[in-house]
Design a protein around this nucleic acid. Structure first.
Lengths: 157, 157
DNA sequence: TACAGTATGTCAGAATACTTACATGGGTCA
DNA sequence: TGACCCATGTAAGTATTCTGACATACTGTA
């Protein structure tokens, strides 16, 4: 991995592919592309898929809850939900029966589309991790979790 | 293939934190937040920083080249470059001397800002990987590279 | 009870990135 | 040379996501 780049500076290990942040972005970008591609026949975008998937795990979740799970703002999730609601894939009461929370549920049409989406996405996901044995995959996932925790910890400010 | 998943659903290993794709998105989101935060005093966004950083590695790069390296479209990179150009951080000839390519260079002001930005971003990056020993970090980075290759390979279509 | 602090849903506007489209330059191959 | 194909830079319009703001509802505390 030499490449001393002589001229000006940084004779460091920065070969770009060795930077975790860069690889992260690259992989994320590639994954997003492939997911959009595989979901296009179902007329779903990746964020919409993520939303439906979350709803399967947490039926009756609130807008804010879904937003946090998808790493977007409440407002973004709200517009996402509207689109899905207009297509009849989800439903939520027009008015809250308690508090302001409008619990969201998948409709049967939503479940149907989601099932197709899941099998497609899993194919992409399987392809992504195909070069990794189970042990490596688990280690990578755990390592990423540690990185997340390190970034998010309140620290001392 | 399989996917019997019994009655309702998947009593599989899907605890969400065990899904590589999810961890990927989570970490990317956290990293982006921290980078924006640390770059704000310099009035740089993360994409702008990425652009400058690329220019340091490849002085004279073309718009399209930078776009590919940053995983955005040419058009997006173009608007990004205009902003940086107006701020005097980069420069490129008004007209191409050969072909259509307008080679872009950092100005001295750009280098100055970038140097500050780099030290800040490296602090964030260091914090992110702090829970990982060098060996683990290298392994993770390599594993991500394998995933990227697996996703991007032309396959057989 | 009254109050402060926090969380939620939503509206409006701005920022960001993408898609579609076109003109131009370089390259290959007959 | 000419025809084709591909890459580049750019423009216009659309889509997506964010920030700021506000009203409302829950929570804990005095």
């Amino acid at each position: 991995m030499g490449q001393e780049k002589g001229a000006d500076d940084f004779a460091r290990e920065d070969s770009l592919e060795s930077l975790l942040g860069y690889q992260l972005k690259h992989l994320q970008s590639a994954l997003r592309s492939k997911m959009d591609e595989t979901l296009r026949p179902l007329e779903l975008t990746t964020p919409q898929y993520n939303c439906l998937e979350q709803l399967r795990r947490r039926p009756g979740a609130s807008n804010s809850e879904l937003a946090r799970g998808a790493f977007v703002t409440r407002q973004t999730m709200n517009t996402l939900l509207r689109g899905l609601q207009e297509r009849g894939l989800i439903e939520r009461p027009a008015t809250a029966e308690s508090g302001r929370i409008l619990p969201t549920l998948l409709t049967s049409a939503g479940v149907e589309v989601l099932d197709q989406a899941i099998s497609r996405v899993e194919a992409v996901s399987a392809r992504m991790v195909s070069p990794l044995d189970d042990e490596t995959q688990a280690m990578v996932t755990e390592a990423l979790g540690l990185c997340i925790a390190a970034l998010e910890e309140p620290e001392n400010r």
